[in-house]
Amino acid sequence: MPVEKVIFYCFAALMLFAAFMVITSRHPVRAVLFLVLSFISASALWLLLEAEFLAIILVLVYVGAVMVLFLFVVMMLNMNTAPLKEGFSRYLPLGILIGVLFAGQVIWLLLDNQALLPEWRSLQRHAADYNNTEILGRALYSDYLYPFEIAGVILLVAIVAAIALTFRGTKSSRKQNISEQVKVTKADRLRIIKD
């Protein structure tokens, strides 16, 4: 068995095991950590497909930022996990049925149509001077320039939305409230004591 297949099967099994633990584990912190394991094994699979830039991006951006954000939120919310698990065994048969049906259908379809795809039969390695990052960069800044800029706008919108949702204002800051200052009347400030 060639070494590529060994690596592929190891990481694919690790990824599926981690994904299984994500959906079944009792505690959310453990689920997030298994999700990290799943992402790292997926990035190994992407490396096997010679998508080096995206594999590194997956580890750096996804595991390094998004999963850490998940971990922060899970640890910040002091939640009681017992009531969150109560429907688990009730929906388990339905979930397994749908999962097996879906996976079985897709795999049957793939294996059935394998002969239709002769050019996909085996992976031809790129030459040694193949540079995935350079090719992606060239495509991104020429053919996909406008989508790239829209992606930047989406990230900006996400930043603004996340801050606007969670920001509660500072209590200690001393700032003017202009509308209240304009609306003030004489009676608010002065108390006239008649003799």
Binding site: P2, E4, K5, F8, A12, M15, L16, A19, F20, V22, I23, T24, A42, L45, L48, L49, G87, F88, Y91, L92, L94, G95, I96, I98, G99, V100, F102, A103, V106, I107, L110, L111, Q114, L117, W120, R121, S122, L123
Partner: peptide, 24 residues
């Protein structure tokens, strides 16, 4: 040699695990 079918089967299994997770 690795074939496309291997990767497609693994990703479809991962997809169905995600769907099962949403259900349960």
């Amino acid at each position: 040699m690795l074939t496309a079918i291997d990767f497609l089967i693994v990703s479809s299994l991962l997809f169905s695990l995600g769907v099962v997770g949403i259900i349960i």
